[in-house]
Amino acid sequence: MCTPQRIGPPTEGFRETVPAMATLTILSGTGKSGEPEAISRLAINAGECLAVVGPTGSGKSELLSDIEQLACGDTLSGRKILLDGKVPENHWSSGGIVAQLSQKTGFIMDGTVEDFIRLHGRSKGLERPDLVEEVLHMTNSLCGEPVLPESRLQVLSGGQSRALMIADIACISDAPLVLIDEIENAGIDKLQALAALTASSKLIVLSTHDPILTLMARKRVVMKQGAMSTLRETTAEEGHCLERLRAVDAVLFRSRDLLRNGQSLTDGVL
């Protein structure tokens, strides 16, 4: 007859701890045609953001996937990823270390926003009563249409879902490293979003085509033919350019709002 072994009720309260992380180092490999990369070593610290730029097909996603897989010379590029200067210990899993903001714009879970936030909080040992308020405060600063605690996940718009996902990563997720693959068309305030994530002292790697996000990141690596070709920091002059670009962006934002609300555009608005 059957004698159940190890199986039993779940051990309530079991929780994984995620190590804090101060630096991410990328040791170079080769580009698409096998040539060594121009940038041989690239390091970023917690609280910093690295933009990965380059034309479509230049290898942005591949670099992000190397980081996600904690590459140790065994991926297409031959790159190596070090955390705090060392090869990560459990290098078969980056689950607790890397959080991802993908192009996904909806949840598969059902239920209210409040229950969802509480569930995620509980899985991380965060039971404080004002957690829902905190996450929604940030969510609603990223997105025009307010998300309420009693809203159902399944009826949120793409922009609302995205905003909630970002606020959730900033407030609840304990992964020290965040990977973002092209968020520009998400219907949210992308600048606020990046600011919110950086403020949570996470280390962010962001692939983007957006000049504002690129300059906001302060450090950027330029991809060419699959290789890291140039590393730049936002210069003082680019800092001024960033201000002007933001003004342009604000005009675009306002115009879009006016037009889609049925109004007509006037010189005064611009």
Binding site: R15, E16, G95, G96, A99, Q100, L101, S102, K104, F107, I108, M109, F116, L119, H120, S123, K124, S161, M165, D168, I169, I172, S173, A175
Partner: peptide, 12 residues
């Protein structure tokens, strides 16, 4: 197919 939060809850 899922968000980071759903992944983390599932992993837990």
């Amino acid at each position: 197919m899922v968000s980071q939060a759903e992944k983390e809850v599932f992993r837990y």
